[in-house]
Amino acid sequence: MRAAAIFSRALAALPARAIEPVMRGAQNILGIKRMPWVFLFPNLAAVLFFSLLPVFINIFYSATGSDRLYPADRPYVGAANYETLFECGSYLDPSTCSRDLFWRALGNTLIFVPVQVAAMIGIALFTAICLNRDIRGRGFFRGIFFFPVMLSPVVVALTWQWILQRNGALNGLLTALGLTPVNWLVFPNSAFFWSVFVTVWAHMGFFTIILLAGLQSIPRDVYEAAKMDAANPWRVFTRITLPMLKPTLLVVFILCVIRSVQTFDELYVLTGGGPGSATILIVQYIYEIGFAIQPRNFGLAAAASLLLGAVLLVFTLIQLRLARGKSYD
C-alpha cells in the first residue's frame, strides 16, 4: 500500500521534474520578465491559428478571383471584389447597386439587430424579474423558458414554419376561433416580425438565466432599506435594480449583439431570406455567395465578410469605449 502511494507520488511529480530543466532554460534565455509569454503561448497560438490566421486568409481570398479553393490557383484581382460590392448609382437606393442584395442584406441587418436586441433584452429582463419572484412553480418555469435554447436552430425554424405556414397550427387555431387565417410568411412586414419573434423565442432563455443570476446577486438588504423608505416598485426598479444590474446588462448586450449579427440558421430555414429579400441578413448573403450557389464566388464572399467585420469592429470599439472606466459596486 505504501509502495503504491510512493509510486503514485513519483508519477505525479514526473512531468514537473521533466519540464523543470526546460523552464529553467527558457528563463535563462528570455529573462524572468518575459516568462509569462511562455505560459500564454499555448492559448495565444490557438487564437493566432484559429482566429487571426483565417482573417489573413480571408483578406487574401478577397483580393483574388476564380472559384478555385487552393490559393495557388487563385489569380490576384486587387480590389475588384470590393469595387463590385460598392458599384452603386446611389448608396441610398440599393436597387441601383450592382450587388443590390448585399446592400439589402446589410440594410436588413441594421434594422434587425437593434430591433431584435431591444426585444430580446426587454423580454429577457421582464422574464428574469418575474422568475426572480417567489412564485409557485418557479423552477418549472425557469426550465420552460430555457428549453428552446437547447434545441437545434433548424428544429426551431422547422417547428415555427409548421406553426406559421398557410395550413399551419396558428391558422388552424384562428379558423377554429372563427377568425380569418393569415399567410404569415408571405408578407414582408409580418415575415420580418416573425423572424424577430422566432429568434427571440429561441435565445431568450439563455439571456434570462444570465440576468436572473445578476438579479440574485443584488443584496436583499438594499431592497429592504427601500421598503422601509416606502419607495414604490417603479422607483425600486429604476433606482436599485437597473443600476445594480448594469454590469450584467452590458455583458448581455454585447453577447446579444454578436449573436444577432450572426443570425443565419433559423431565418435561412424559416424564410430563406424572403419574401423577396425582406429577411435576408448579411450572413445569409455571404453564405449564398460563397457556398450555396454555383460557381462559388469565394472572393466576393470574403470581401463582404471583411466589410461586415469592419462594421462590427467599429461597434465593438464604441461599446468598449462606453464600458471603459465604469465600475459598479
Binding site: 399567410n183 410568411l185 408571405v186 415575415a191 431570406g273 424572403g274 419574401p275 429577411t279 450555396a292
Partner: peptide, 12 residues
C-alpha cells in the same frame, strides 16, 4: 400562391 415564389427568398 405566394407561398413558394413569393414567400421565399434567395436561391432556396
Amino acid at each position: 400562391p405566394l407561398d413558394l415564389w413569393g414567400a421565399v427568398g434567395g436561391s432556396t
